[in-house]
Design a protein around this nucleic acid. Structure first.
Lengths: 91, 91, 91, 91
DNA sequence: AACGCATAAGTAAGAC
DNA sequence: GTCTTACTTATGCGTT
C-alpha cells in the first residue's frame, strides 16, 4: 500500500471507510424510496381494481401538486398560446 | 466449431451474421431517432430564444397530440373526478 | 346534486369519498418519497463537502445496483449472442 | 381583438403565426421519430420471427451503446473509489 | 384484458 | 446563465 491508512483492505489513498458509509447510506434511503414507490403503485392498482381510471387519477394528482398560483400562471400562458392557435385545449 | 455455419468467426451456434445485421439495423435507426430528437430540442431552444415559454409549448403539443375524441373523453372523466373533490382543475 | 350520495359535497356519480382517500394516500406517500429524495441529496452534498466526487459516487452506486440486480440473470442467451458478435460484454 | 395583429384569427398578443410554425415543426419531427420507432419495433419483431430472443438483443444493444459512450470516460476516479470498496466494478 | 417491461418525455439539479 | 446530465414519471407495447 502506498499510504498509511490504518485499517485493513484495499485502500487507494481515499478514505475508504468514509466512502463506504456514504455509499451505504445512499443505498439505504434509495431502498426506502423504492419501497414507497412500490406502495404508491399498489395504491394505483388498487384504485384501478375498484373501477377508477388510474390514468385520470395520475393527471389529477399532478394538477393538484402544481402549486395553485403557479398553476394558474402556467395555465394563463398556455391558454394564451392555445387561443393563438385557435384551439380550445380543455374542450 | 460445433455447427456447420459456413462463415468465419466467433460463432456459437446462432446465426452470427444474421444477428449482427439485425443489431446494426437497430443501431442505425436508433441513431436517426437520436438525431431527430436533437433537432426537436433545437426547435425548443430556438423558440425559447424568441421569447416563448418552452414548457408551455410542450404542454400545448402534448394536448394537441392527444387525439381529440380521446382527449375529450379523458377530460370528461378527469372533470368528473375533479368535481368529486370539489376542485376546479383548470382554474 | 344529481345523485343520492349521502355525504356533503360535489359528487358527480363517482364515489367521491373513496376517490379522495385514494388521492390523499397517494399524496402522502409521495411526500415521504420527496423527503427521502431530499435526504439522499443531502448525503451527496455532504460527501461533496468532505472532498468526494459526487458524480463518481453516483456512478459507483449505479454500478453496484446494476450488479446486484441485473448481472446474474439470463446471461446464457446473452453471452451466446455476444460471442456471436465477437465481443465480450463484461470485458 | 386587443392587438394590432394583421392576420385573421384568435390572436391574444403573442405572435400566433410564429408559434404555429414552431408547433408544426415540432409535430413534424415528432412524427418522423414515431415512424422510425415503428421501424425499430418491426426489426425486433422480425428478429423474433426468425427465432432470436428480442429481449436479449435489446440488452445486447444497450450494452454496446454503453460501451461506446460511457466506459472510457473518467475511469480513474471511479476505479480509485471502487478499489477502496474492495470491489472490481468491471469484474 | 391485465401485468410487467421498456422506452420516451418531462422536470429539476448541477457544472462550466 | 446556459447547458448538460440525471432522475422521475408516464405511456405504450408485448406477453400471458
Amino acid at each position: 500500500m502506498t499510504d498509511d491508512t490504518p485499517g485493513p483492505g484495499h485502500n487507494s489513498g481515499v478514505a475508504a471507510d468514509e466512502l463506504r458509509q456514504i455509499v451505504e447510506r445512499i443505498e439505504r434511503v434509495s431502498e426506502e424510496i423504492e419501497g414507497l414507490q412500490g406502495d404508491r403503485k399498489d395504491i394505483y392498482s388498487e384504485a384501478k381494481g375498484r373501477g377508477f381510471d388510474a390514468k385520470a387519477i395520475r393527471r389529477l394528482v399532478r394538477e393538484r401538486k402544481r402549486d395553485h398560483a403557479e398553476r394558474q400562471e402556467e395555465n394563463a400562458i398556455l391558454q394564451t398560446y392555445a387561443q393563438a392557435l385557435g384551439m380550445d385545449i380543455f374542450g
